[in-house]
Simulated assay, not measured.
Amino acid sequence: MVIASGRSNRHVGALADHLLQALKESGHAHAKVEGLQAADWVLIDAGDVVVHLFRPEVRSFYDLEKMWGGAPETAA
């Protein structure tokens, strides 16, 4: 699972579009996507990897990292 943030709805949407294009080019064109229209929280299920892209306020509200306490964090 990958959790990342964008600075705004437009940024989250652009990150999701870029990721979906990269997945398509690498042969994973059938990734499932939820939330792209609003772009507050976009979920991309690429099979073995699930990506959550959030606006900062939405990320702090849902606090998914809490569910995975003890998992290492990495800065991008």
Rank of each mutant, 00 (worst) to 15 (best):
V51D: 01
K24M: 12
S60W: 05
E65K: 06
W68E: 01
G35M: 01
A76R: 14
G35E: 06
E34L: 11
A76Y: 13
Q37I: 02
Q37E: 13
K66S: 14
A39C: 06
D45R: 00
R7T: 12
R59Y: 07
K66Q: 10
A4K: 12
I3H: 04
R10A: 09
K32D: 15
A46P: 02
I3N: 03
V49I: 03
W68G: 01
R59P: 10
K24T: 07
K66V: 12
L64S: 06
N9K: 07
R55A: 06
H52E: 00
V51L: 01
D63C: 05
A29K: 11
V33K: 08
E57Y: 08
A16Y: 05
H52M: 05
A29Q: 14
A38V: 02
H52N: 03
L19R: 00
E73D: 13
Q37L: 08
D17E: 15
G27M: 12
F61T: 10
T74I: 15
D48Q: 05
L64E: 04
L36K: 14
L53C: 04
E57T: 09
V49Q: 02
F61H: 13
Q21R: 09
A29P: 12
Q21D: 15
H28I: 09
S60H: 11
E73M: 15
D48M: 00
A22E: 15
G69Y: 10
A38L: 11
V50N: 09
P72Q: 12
H18L: 14
A46F: 02
T74F: 15
Q21M: 11
M67D: 06
V12Y: 02
M67A: 07
M67E: 07
H28K: 07
V49T: 04
L15P: 13
V51G: 03
M1G: 06
E25I: 07
V2W: 03
W41T: 06
V58R: 07
